[in-house]
Design a protein around this nucleic acid. Sequence first.
DNA 1: CATCCGTGGGC
DNA 2: TGCCCAAGGAT
Length: 352
Amino acid sequence: MDASSDQIAPALLGWYDACARVLPWRAPPGAPPPDPYRVWLSEVMLQQTTVAAVKGYFAAFTRRWPTVTALAAADEAEVMAAWAGLGYYARARNLLACAREVAARGGAFPDSEAELRVLPGLGAYTAAAVAAIAFGRRAVVVDANVERVVARLFAIGDALPGARPAIRVAAEAITPDRRAGDFAQAMMDLGATICTARAPRCLLCPLSGPCAARAGGEPERYPVKAAKKPRPQRVGRAFWIERDEAVWLVRRAGRGMLGGMRALPDDGWSARGDGAGPPPLAGPWDSAGTVTHGFTHFGLDLHLSVYLGRDWASLPAGVGEWWPLARLDEAGLPTLFAKAARLALAGTGDGD
DNA sequence: CATCCGTGGGC
DNA sequence: TGCCCAAGGAT
């Protein structure tokens, strides 16, 4: 750290006081901390997810479940359906598990980073963020924004993830004893609006003075990242079985891809990916077309087959339910199957 | 430490 | 259009 390290927090907090984003889960700069439930809920929703995507879900969750105790009392199926479309569904399973742990201890979140860290779904980042933002604790909050800002401030040229220890040491050095929550949120605002991954707006940056990457002329070069692996393509089939204005939906296994979510029956593409798994009944099947979808680590071409017969007795008992088409938007289908359902209802596939 | 786990937007 | 990216966690 150079001699200017102790000037970084004051400069950043001054900028935050003037320019903080107004967000539904956030208190104004310098104000008392907001409800820990809202801080925790927002932080979990914001894991790997944009502010714009979270806003609607945050409003819906807090309206439906105003307290952690109310959320703890919800059925898992309701929570999973409410989370549908937001992605990374293990977050929703851990969210409910965490709510139930907190409710069991009287409905109050623990106020220390160490105690928060052991709750389901709270890793190093989220435990530090909740401790700082909801409880005013000094905690070193390191997310992707902080990694980028710090890597640029100190021109840390080692590639991620190997550079993480050095980045943490640097973040620790600039984290103030007071207003650690505002500092963390200021770093994230800076990363989201000024010190962006591409085309950083250094002319507007309150830290451009001490920034080593700015001085070097290529701030966008930081942080250096390891090369990514190629993303394979898989093929699968899903099956639309309709009867009396209702469609047969199943519940996916509790772990793995789209775990715990309602879904169309499929051929097991998440495990095999060759499109050759068995259908839930013999058929005959008509093609309704293909849905393309991109997941984090593979792409998927999902061929949708429609059953027009009446041999429903062969459907495996107890693993599915007839869902009324009129209420399909309440089923909580993840995006892949929402696309497939749209295709089936439109009835205008590409015919393959 | 590497891998798995969604989604939508920006360029 | 394809790729990168976003307030990461669990295993």
